[in-house]
Design a protein around this nucleic acid. Sequence first.
DNA 1: CCCGTAACGTTAGTCGCTAACATTTGGTGT
DNA 2: ACACCAAATGTTAGCGACTAACGTTACGGG
Lengths: 186, 186
Amino acid sequence: MPTPRTLRTRARILDAALDLFERQGYDATTVNQIADAAGITPMTFFRHFPTKDAVLVTDPYDPLIAEAVGAQPAGLPPLERVRLGLLAALGDITPTEDSTAKRRVALVAQSPSLRAAAAVGTDATQQAIVARLVADGVDRLDAAIAAAACLAATTAALLAWGTAPDDLAVLVRRALAQLAPAGATP
Amino acid sequence: MPTPRTLRTRARILDAALDLFERQGYDATTVNQIADAAGITPMTFFRHFPTKDAVLVTDPYDPLIAEAVGAQPAGLPPLERVRLGLLAALGDITPTEDSTAKRRVALVAQSPSLRAAAAVGTDATQQAIVARLVADGVDRLDAAIAAAACLAATTAALLAWGTAPDDLAVLVRRALAQLAPAGATP
DNA sequence: CCCGTAACGTTAGTCGCTAACATTTGGTGT
DNA sequence: ACACCAAATGTTAGCGACTAACGTTACGGG
């Protein structure tokens, strides 16, 4: 239960940061500048976001995705289970996007250092999926390969979405379709 | 043409760093400690390695891989071209591994922050592949998806190799086989 | 309208990394 | 063997991300 005050400052930090990042670039913007623009102290910035890149990169979807993957038929090959699981989870995530999502993704798409930060989040998602599949008796390496490939394809679509007018769900479906077994409908 | 002295110090830094990383962990080791152990100044460390993680993460293979991908039949779907290209490049890379390769990979496999650093390198490789495919008329998003998926699968195999007794080439072939169209031999 | 508590500020410090300039070292050619 | 010049290293000073401990403000519920 975050107090109203917390939400206000958090929103001011996010606004200031997004504005500065878009105007002068992520790397050229310091936390001090963001804090000044938001009318706070650098210290306070770090109380709301653990790192500078956390303003742009957040993933609260790991459990949801892992569960969706686990819900797919256990008889399927790992790659298919992950692929179908991601497609299923897509429906739950897409409508939730807040209004800053696209701006954030566009910024991440531009800076390699930010993509690396985003990779840490993807990595966590991958571990969650692997853990779920291993619990079902899937070989650990096979699970890691399937999860890594599907998440990488999804990420590629996500980054393209940041700088394109298309619908996110369409791009992700197109990405995962490329990993489908030859001649499959979904 | 690196002077002999340069090679010596470089080797001493690498030895000291690997030793410290393995004994007390990557994050817990400072550049100062590495410099002391190597009998040099922190400044000199950065003259040989641009960043702390560069001791462990290096990729001089981008052009080689991009070329191998481009050499595959242009009629194939992008995913197949990248997949076969990586398999072809594998033969050229594997014999070149130096003796510290496995120790370095094992360390990278342990720390999420290091995996992120490695992701920057993978990202560059992906861009190289995409550029090559786009030059052949392939759609940019399709190319990015194919490259991202294949490289992610390969990376998963590489990280597994760090902590397993298996042969690297075997693991990579197994990884890429999962992305093959249903019922293909290679 | 008061009061407790959450939110914020202050200070001081570590670590990764960089720039500009001075200094040493080592291999080369005589 | 010796002197020389360039390459390699050291010195100092500094920035930016991030953390810890502790004191201070101000907001919102009663």
